[in-house]
Amino acid sequence: MVEIKTPEQIAKMREAGLVVAAMHDACRTAAVPGASTKDLDEVAAKVLADHGAKPNFLGYGGFPGNICTSVNDIVVHGIPDGATVLKEGDLLSIDAGAIIDGWHGDAAITVFVGEGHSAELHELSRVTEESMWAGIAAVRKGNRLVDVSRSIEGYIRRQPRPASGSYGIVEDYGGHGIGSQMHMDPHLLNYVDRRRGRGPKLVPGLCLAIEPMVTLGTPKTHVLSDDWTVKTNDGTWSSHWEHSVALTESGPLVLTAPDGGKAKLAELGITAAPDPLA
């Protein structure tokens, strides 16, 4: 069943989303050469405590961290630990979540550690982030779930090929519904699979976590022996961006963006819904 939220529940999710944004700001600042991914986890834990929020990753299916820290060829679900020390030139995705009064927020960013990153890596992150926004722009009344998938995939496919040959759209992981739980129906592919049909109609009160994961090579991945860490099969690096979005009667509200998505959606010719906390 797809959970439809009331405006009051969306307002609670907005509170949780702003905590996630604060976690990302603090972790981005702390992600410097010499810091361990455990250091970042502790930074995230402090932000959660300061805001009176709970982590939605810690303990989820036994996951041992407050955030996921995925470095270079790790696509998602990297476990923070003291042994993984960030180096100059690393590419790091930070997936973070928070719960306020039982309502969830979830978002991911890609961070450049230090200096010296290639133009190809910068373009990988840009393409991934912009494909996310293309998907967000498709969250409109009357559209169906497949329209979001098509917008994400279409944006990526239209970009010039990288020197590695192609962008791999990771197939085994995707976006999801979010609300009273972190992962809910519907599952959102980042590409169109015609076997799955058009998916549910997008209606006010629907909330989605939109999260493309793109590699510089194969879309194929495997899970390490810890049963969490997901790596690319060919060792190419990847980028991961995510926002939680609510569809309201007034349009989309990006719950995990500090401005509710107002500025970026305006660039795309879309008016963001009013912020219920403003």
Rank of each mutant, 00 (worst) to 15 (best):
S131H: 04
V146T: 04
R144N: 02
S125M: 10
Q181P: 00
E123H: 13
W133E: 00
A137W: 12
S151M: 13
I156M: 04
A163E: 15
E171Q: 15
E115Q: 15
L145D: 00
W133Y: 07
G175S: 02
L124Y: 12
G142M: 05
Y173R: 06
D172F: 14
I178R: 06
D172C: 11
S164R: 13
M132W: 10
A137F: 12
S118V: 11
N143R: 09
R140E: 14
M182P: 03
V127A: 00
I152S: 04
V170S: 01
G114M: 14
S180M: 07
Y173D: 00
D172L: 15
S125T: 11
R158P: 08
M132C: 11
G177Q: 06
S149K: 09
L121N: 05
V170T: 09
P160G: 00
L124W: 11
A134N: 13
G165W: 11
G114H: 12
T110R: 05
V170H: 04
V113G: 07
G174P: 14
R140V: 08
R144Y: 12
G135K: 04
G114D: 07
G116D: 03
R150T: 05
A163W: 13
K141Q: 15
F112M: 13
Q159L: 05
Q159W: 11
P162Q: 02
L145F: 11
V127H: 08
D172T: 15
H176E: 01
W133M: 02
A134R: 14
H176R: 08
S151H: 11
V170C: 05
S131R: 06
